Simulated assay, not measured.
Amino acid sequence: MVDLQLPDLSMAPILWDRNRDDTLVCRQVRQETHDVKTFVLSAVEPRLLRYAPGQFITLELEIDGQNINRCYTLSSSPTRPDTVSITVKRVPGGAVSNWLHDNLKAGDALRVLGPAGEFSCFMQAVPAQHKYLFLSAGSGITPLMSMSRAVHDLTLNADIAFVHSARTPSDIIFARELELMARNHQYFRLGFVCERHGDQPAWAGFNGFLSQAVLHNIAPDFLEREVFTCGPAPYMAAVRTILQQAGFDMARYHEESFSFETLSAATVPAAQAEQRVAASPEPAARHTVRFARSGDEVACSGSQTILEAAREVGMRLPVSCTQGLCGTCKTKMVSGQVDMKHAGGIRQREIDQGWILPCCSKPLGDVVLER
């Protein structure tokens, strides 16, 4: 428990240093829907948190004597840099989501890593001049909400069509705020798709599931837009099918892996794919792995993963599954070669572009990573 004292706003602002700062305090808990809560967090001492809308933080938790890392996308916007927020859906059987819902309260401190991640329209050259289609389902709304809040706060002229899918109208997260954005922003179009009416028989929105017809209705020009998608794996697979059948240029398609708690072995390709970036390593060899952004270096044998070597010297990297499944630790390899055995957490086109998963990659020589 951390004392809830008001910060001295007259102090000169200090930036959050992701390489040094590691503790956030829960300041408020908001009930969004019957099974979704938002946790508003800030640093122990006043810090301004800078990040790209759509990035995530990694929580380092101890639950029932077990150390668990779990990544959550920030639903907040960096345009309001004194606090960040995560919005968490209670997952049946989910160790972390249930613990957060049942235990985390104002005043509690959390150890965190980040922010990090590459899923953001703000990482493009001129976001204000682009046309976007945001597609989300369930709590996959969070990164797209972060981007939308930033566009709204900055009064950018980015043209956004936002289509969110939910089980029922009562399950729509941030419904009122999204409707307010649509009223305030000339270039913000909004559509909700619900599987069923639930307790709102007068629901006048779209019924059923996302389809090409729904997209044509909400965003007739969707083939011209940059698409950002986040949601459960079956939803994202359906989105890819819809877009491909419509002739969409998939080079302009971006998706974010959903919460690791919703993944299981059943969703992983049966082959537990081996992806070899080069030939087999020499187990006894010792190599240097350098992290370009932080300047850190670690020694790593050919029989160790990069994650294992980094943890040995106390480095903290964002990671959830440690098995090449979730893609949380994905980073760009600037130089070098690795032997990577993943379980579906990275796509072939990402590998071709130089991305690797440190949790399942063993160096074949000296390696430089962008992180």
Rank of each mutant, 00 (worst) to 15 (best):
M1W: 06
Q5N: 15
Q5G: 14
L6G: 07
D8Y: 15
P13F: 05
W16E: 04
R18T: 03
N19K: 06
N19A: 04
R30Q: 14
T38C: 09
S42T: 07
R47P: 06
R50Q: 12
P53M: 09
F56Y: 15
L61V: 05
N67S: 13
R80G: 07
R80Q: 11
D82W: 15
P92T: 12
P92G: 14
P92S: 08
V96P: 03
W99F: 14
W99Y: 13
N103Y: 12
N103H: 15
K105S: 08
D108N: 05
L113R: 08
G114K: 00
S120A: 05
F122W: 06
P127S: 07
L133W: 01
L135I: 05
A137L: 04
I141Y: 07
T142N: 14
P143S: 06
L144W: 09
L144K: 10
M145Y: 11
S148L: 07
S148C: 09
D153K: 04
T155S: 14
H164F: 03
A166H: 02
A175L: 08
L180D: 13
G191Y: 03
C194K: 04
L215R: 03
F222T: 06
R225I: 04
P232N: 09
I242N: 08
Q244R: 13
E255C: 04
F258D: 03
T267I: 15
V268T: 12
A270F: 03
Q272E: 13
Q275L: 09
V277D: 15
A278E: 13
S280M: 10
P281T: 11
E282G: 14
R286Q: 14
R286M: 08
F291A: 11
G295W: 01
Q304F: 06
A309S: 13
C321G: 03
T331R: 04
V334N: 09
G354C: 13
C359T: 04
G365N: 01
D366L: 10
E370W: 04
